[in-house]
Amino acid sequence: MAIKHPIHSIPNTTEADIDSKRVTPIVLSASETKDLLQSLHAAPQPLSLEVQNAIANYKRIKAKPLPK
């Protein structure tokens, strides 16, 4: 049995849809290119409190010593 790629887990997406997406390069129209390039320079939104808490938890996990 062929092993499915995780992208196959997208709901309501058929194998044919996915195969076409995996092999078809993403092509941008002129306006999409312009929109994308402009969005790269937009000021980022502030991080939510939830993300700030997640970053604090990240630091705790990273600093956690091996139990003796």
Binding site: P25, I26, L28, S29, A30, T33, L37
Partner: peptide, 15 residues
């Protein structure tokens, strides 16, 4: 890695 390909290459070839 992945890339997007603009149809119009006048500004950029690849993103």
């Amino acid at each position: 890695s992945d890339s997007y390909y603009p149809e119009d290459h006048s500004e950029v070839d690849l993103i």
